Structure formats: C-alpha cells, structure tokens
Computed example of a mutant assay.
Amino acid sequence: MPQTNPRPQNGANESLLDRAIDKFKPQPGPPPKPAAPSAKGNRAWEESVEQHHVAPGLTVHDVGLSVFGETCSLHDRPGSNEPIGAARQRVAHAMINDAELSHRTGKPRNAVHPPVQPSENVLRSPDERAAYESSLRAAREGYLSGHDPTNGATHFNMRPRPDRSNWKFPNGTSEGLTMSTHSGPYDNSLPNRNAPAHTTWLNTYFPDANDKKIRRKR
C-alpha cells in the first residue's frame, strides 16, 4: 500500500535546511563597475575635439586657451555658488556664442585674452596645470553640450562685488547689458585692471540690439 505523507530522507532534510540558512546568509553584491578610462588614455579624443572649429578661424582649443588666460588666477573658495570649473564653462559658452554671432552678423568679436599656449615651465605649477586642464575641459564641454547654461550670453566680466546690475561701458547702450549668469565668489590671486580685487564674481551677459545687427560681411 502506498504510504501517505512520507518522511523525507536525511539528504532532503539537509537540502531544505541549507536553503533556509542560505536565505539569511549575506548575499553577494553586484559586480564592480569597470574602471573609467584614464584621462591620459582619453587625451587623443580630447585633442580631436579641440581641433574642431566653433567658427571660421577659432578652434575649441583656442577657446580653452582664452578661458585659461582670462580665469587662470581664479580659485575656488568656501561659500561660492558653484565651482570655478562650472563658471569657466559659462565663459566658454559666452565666447562660443559670440564667435557664432560674429560669423552670422559680421560684427567684430568681443575682445578676450589671446589664445596663447602656456609654456611647459608655467604648466609645471600644479595650480596653473589644474586651471589649464579645467579651461580646456570647459571649452570641450561647452562645444559638445546640447545645453547652454547662459541661454545665449556673449559677454562676460569679473566684478569685485556681487553686483547684478546691467553692465554699462563706453560705446555701449545706455541700458547696458542684461546679466545672464552670476558665479562666485572666487579667490583672485592676481588682481588686475579687469579684476581688481582679491575676491571676484564672474558674470555673463546677453547681447544687446546693437550686437545683433546684421553688418556687411568682411
């Protein structure tokens, strides 16, 4: 006669017990993520991006060098609303936007620091090297990004106070330029005529009606 509710064999008992215990054992985590490629390994790709022209006669690398020339003396400090690297990207966007507007309208480009390659001696300084790499990265990301955080700004300046008023300057309009973005404050290790204080804010501004006029192409 067949048995009902047969008693499991010892092996089956152990298997059920093992499975019950396994539920309370620490479970293995997900496999580790693959390491990101090193910056050195990406340099060939970065250099290829930097050779692209944002407008005739102006490469992404040129933009990065100008960003470096303008901002190499600025450093992060506590209380800033964003890192200097983010502010550099806004400056890069403003330079790129201005070059594109100049190409469309024939207006002269805004004056910025010339795109001068720093010497190897300069780049031996850790601070200078960090600012240089940050500036080139800002230009690459500004060129490749599908989002412009300045919404079309074409001008920028450095101010010694958190002033959000319009920027008025000789030969400009009476209304001045409307601010787009406001970054800072940053430590300025090299005060000069354009950034006269040791504490500096970095702003971008929209073009005015005069900037947008169509001129005869040169």
Rank of each mutant, 00 (worst) to 15 (best):
P2S: 14
T4R: 07
Q9Y: 06
Q9K: 09
N10K: 09
N10S: 08
G11I: 02
G11D: 14
A12E: 15
E14D: 05
L17S: 09
L17Q: 11
A20S: 08
D22H: 04
K23E: 14
K23W: 10
P26R: 10
P32S: 02
P34M: 05
A36E: 15
G41Q: 14
G41H: 01
A44M: 01
A44V: 11
H52C: 06
A55K: 04
P56R: 08
P56H: 09
G57R: 04
G57N: 02
L58M: 13
D62M: 04
D62T: 05
G64K: 07
T71Y: 05
T71I: 11
D76L: 03
G79C: 07
G79T: 07
E82W: 00
P83W: 03
I84P: 02
G85E: 10
A87L: 00
R88A: 07
R90S: 07
V91R: 01
V91D: 02
H93E: 06
M95C: 03
N97Y: 05
D98P: 02
A99P: 01
L101T: 03
S102P: 01
S102V: 00
H103G: 01
R104G: 00
K107L: 08
R109T: 09
A111G: 00
P114V: 07
P114K: 03
P115L: 10
Q117H: 10
P118Q: 11
P118S: 09
R124T: 12
S125V: 08
D127C: 03
D127W: 05
R129H: 10
Y132N: 02
S135E: 08
S135W: 09
S135V: 11
L136Y: 06
L136I: 12
A138M: 11
A138Y: 11
G142W: 10
G142I: 11
L144H: 02
G146R: 13
H147I: 14
D148E: 06
P149R: 12
A153W: 10
H155R: 15
N157P: 00
N157W: 08
P160N: 02
P162S: 05
P162N: 11
N166G: 00
W167A: 03
P170K: 07
T173S: 15
S174Q: 07
E175T: 15
E175W: 07
E175R: 15
S183R: 03
G184E: 04
D187P: 00
L190F: 04
L190W: 08
R193G: 10
A195D: 06
P196A: 12
P196V: 12
P196Q: 13
W201M: 05
L202M: 07
A209H: 04
N210M: 10
N210Y: 11
K212H: 10
K213I: 09
K213C: 00
R216D: 11
K217W: 01
K217A: 10
K217D: 09
